[in-house]
């Protein structure tokens, strides 16, 4: 009690100093400081380290070879067949998955936005795939599409689309498409959720005005819904592209990049280079290329969609 009393009388207590500090503009920097340190430690440092090892020889199984090699890995990459296949597959994989996810996400969001009876429950159900870890989703689909026991094969044979069970992941013609469908199934709730939030933000009056003006559902969608969701779409696509390019887990579970590199993508290739060949230098270079490609994509995309304006 007495100490408290003293504190309020003496102007120079630590609390008072802190109080005074909070009135100055340094306070903001002080508050940012912890998160800045954290960012530096867990983002900036690993990123820089990645750049550094990409110009070094770093093969765990060859401790003697350590040293600077400059652009060696990048030069080697230019003539690395698997790199080019992976690059092409990454582009196909990301583009196709996003296209499907955006479409499904939109349909789901519009349906959920109707507020019909049962949409609450449906809303939870639709989000379920997203709650599943990629690895779990991968194993589940591996079983669903299994060439021996798969329910999907069974259904397709029963309704006459297939004559015999198909090994979807064993045929290079269908492996990538099959994995894309699984990824899209897993990822579309992300778009549904964001689009739903976006749709809720569009004033009802706009649709009423359009109805009075005589614009049909298609025009309303094109002239109101899409433009009003532009920012949400742009942000969601960027986030999803980044996560798709960076996460090889589903492919690792479903195909391991096979058959014969038919489903090899950059992230999986970098992962395998690092953890199967223990060639961290080359894996680092692959990751740096992914990083640069993603940065380029994000910059160009943001420019094109003008989302930073307004």
């Amino acid at each position: 009690m007495r100490r408290d009393h003293m504190k309020s009388v003496l102007p120079r207590g630590p609390i008072t100093l802190l109080g005074n500090l909070s009135e100055t503009r340094y306070w903001v920097y002080l508050l940012l400081f912890p998160s800045l340190i954290l960012l530096l430690l867990v983002v900036a440092y690993p990123t820089l380290y990645g750049f550094v090892i990409s110009v070094r020889e770093m093969r765990l199984t060859r401790p003697g070879l350590n040293g600077w090699v400059g652009m060696k890995h990048y030069v080697a990459m230019m003539s690395d067949r698997v790199f080019w296949i992976s690059l092409k597959n990454t582009a196909i994989w990301v583009t196709a998955a996003i296209a499907i996810e955006v479409t499904l996400g939109f349909v789901a969001a519009v349906a959920l936005n109707r507020n019909l009876p049962g949409t609450k429950l449906f809303g939870v159900l639709i989000l379920l795939p997203y709650f599943l870890p990629n690895v779990v989703a991968g194993h589940m689909w591996a079983l669903l599409l299994d060439p021996r026991l798969g329910v999907i094969n069974d259904l397709l044979v029963r309704i006459g689309i297939l004559s015999t069970y198909k090994a979807w992941f064993a045929d290079p013609a269908t492996a990538l498409a099959a994995t894309i469908l699984v990824e899209a199934w897993h990822g579309f709730p992300f778009f549904a959720l964001l689009f739903l939030a976006g749709l809720k933000g569009i004033p009802e009056d706009l649709y009423k005005a359009a109805a009075v003006d005589g614009a049909g559902p298609v025009r309303q969608f094109r002239l109101i819904t899409v433009p009003m969701l532009k920012t949400v779409i742009a942000a969601a696509v960027i986030l999803r592209v980044i996560s798709l390019v960076n996460s090889p887990d589903l492919l690792l579970v479903l195909t391991g990049g096979g058959p014969g590199n038919a489903t090899q993508v950059l992230s999986l290739y970098a992962f395998q280079t690092a953890y199967r060949e223990f060639n961290f230098g080359y894996a680092g270079a692959l990751s740096v290329v992914m990083f640069i490609l993603l940065m380029l994509f994000a910059t160009i995309y943001i420019r094109l969609t003008h989302v930073t304006k307004e």
Partner: peptide, 24 residues
Amino acid sequence: FVGAAGWSENVVNPAFQSVLTGQL
């Protein structure tokens, strides 16, 4: 031998799969 695992999984596997799928 050093590198056996990497070579087996990252080279032999896809190469053989490519033979099975008719790409090589």
